[in-house]
Design a binder for these strands. Structure first.
Lengths: 231, 231
DNA sequence: CCATTACGCTACGACTCGTAGCGAAACCAC
DNA sequence: GTGGTTTCGCTACGAGTCGTAGCGTAATGG
């Protein structure tokens, strides 16, 4: 995943895969103990029992290293079929919240996102190794819900894409804000309430794809909501 | 707001209010040009035409200085009465998005939030000078909507508090995620879609305050939605 | 006039950064 | 084996930042 193989190397001493793992693990350890700002590559090198130069040969700098170290935390995200869209959402949101609650994710993720506002390459790295993996779950859950009949099949593909993006920003944003800014746990009770709001909102919005009205009024259509569920 | 008057000082040379303003303005300027990571207090001092020691006499460090500098950006947030809850939400979300789109807010805000995960005092400072000011708008908008009859009067005060917290995390989180992570503009079209989902979700959720069910099923009640609006 | 506090300036040790240079180690092709 | 190639660990280095101390000066109140 983070193999920085520049080109299909011909010969020479191969890079130690163990060193990669040790460096990333040491980075997470340092994130827990020191946090982002006090984390130094020299310290990571010591923890990983490698030379500082070895790290610089593989990663451009602290930003990229932390992105890869944090990205591995999200590898465990799964979307088991829990029977209903609501249950699926609650399950994956709870997983996401559990990862975000870990100190290495907290202090590392937001810091690199902040840095990415002035570094397009870094943002692309975050997108590829963290964000896209999360967004794929949204797509998967949506497809599953369509199979169940809980959501109508996508009519306009572009509209569907916008909706997925919206869902993703709402879900990930809400959990992140709850965890990091409000500094309160995204526990089961909160996730239940959040899922209810999200689901009702999406179901209601799906009948009125778009409109020029300044929003408001329309509402009656919301009755055709979360069909399915506890059948 | 950022007056760091330790105690009601008796005598001596008073602190220059102009210096405070110059330092905060210089901080924002440096955030735009350099970003968070390359911003140094020495540079800020030069830009503000003050001595570096003057900054250290007023702020503990870079984190707190940036919090105060960014906080001033949110002073302009207003909640004019636009007639409907939907319009009110859209208006304030657009304002919020406009502030977040500014580079000094982007690079500064997320960085201090990241730091606040390991610094309780810093988080409290952020809460007091930035977050609470935003949350007050949610309360104000809710009260206004209740007056209009768009939302039922709060029955259980604790339940109402949880709802306000949820709304706040969803709104602020979604806009932040859209702007910083997805790196796409929270323009009028996006805000319209977001408001529609949020409003339908809240209206639908308001009849079924809470339940032990794993969510899903319930939906019919959603018809008693956004009453009022374009009367 | 005097006590008190803020200010500008200089200088300082401590620390981190990212790189360069070296010899040794590990791999491949022959 | 032997030679070529790449990585590794180690040391050392200049550059830059941090946060503080010390000093003389400026501005206020009693």
């Amino acid at each position: 995943m983070q193999s920085r193989t520049p080109v299909p190397r011909a010969s020479g001493r191969p890079r130690s895969a163990a060193a990669d793992a040790a460096i990333l693990a040491a980075t997470r350890e340092a994130l827990v103990e020191l946090g982002w700002s006090k984390l130094t590559l020299g310290d990571v090198a010591t923890r990983a029992a490698v030379a500082k130069t070895t790290i610089y040969r593989r990663w451009p700098g602290k930003n990229e290293l932390v992105v890869d170290a944090v990205a591995e935390l999200f590898d465990e995200l799964r979307l088991p079929d829990r029977g209903t869209l609501a249950a699926d959402i609650e399950g994956v949101v709870l997983q996401f919240a559990a990862i975000l609650a870990r100190p290495e994710a907290k202090s590392g993720l937001m810091a690199v996102v902040a840095e990415s506002t002035r570094d397009d390459a870094l943002r692309e790295r975050i997108r590829a190794s963290i964000v896209d993996r999360q967004k794929r779950l949204v797509l998967e859950g949506r497809a599953r819900a369509q199979t169940r009949g809980e959501l109508p099949p996508e009519s306009d593909p572009e509209e569907a894409s916008r909706t997925v993006d919206l869902i993703f920003d709402v879900v990930a944003g809400a959990v992140v804000h709850r965890t990091l800014v409000s500094a309160e746990p995204a526990d089961e009770e909160w996730v239940r309430g959040f899922t209810r709001v999200l689901l009702l909102g999406l179901a209601g919005a799906s009948d009125t794809p778009n409109s020029a009205e300044p929003a408001g009024s329309r509402a009656a259509g919301a009755a055709r909501v979360g069909a399915g569920g506890t059948p």
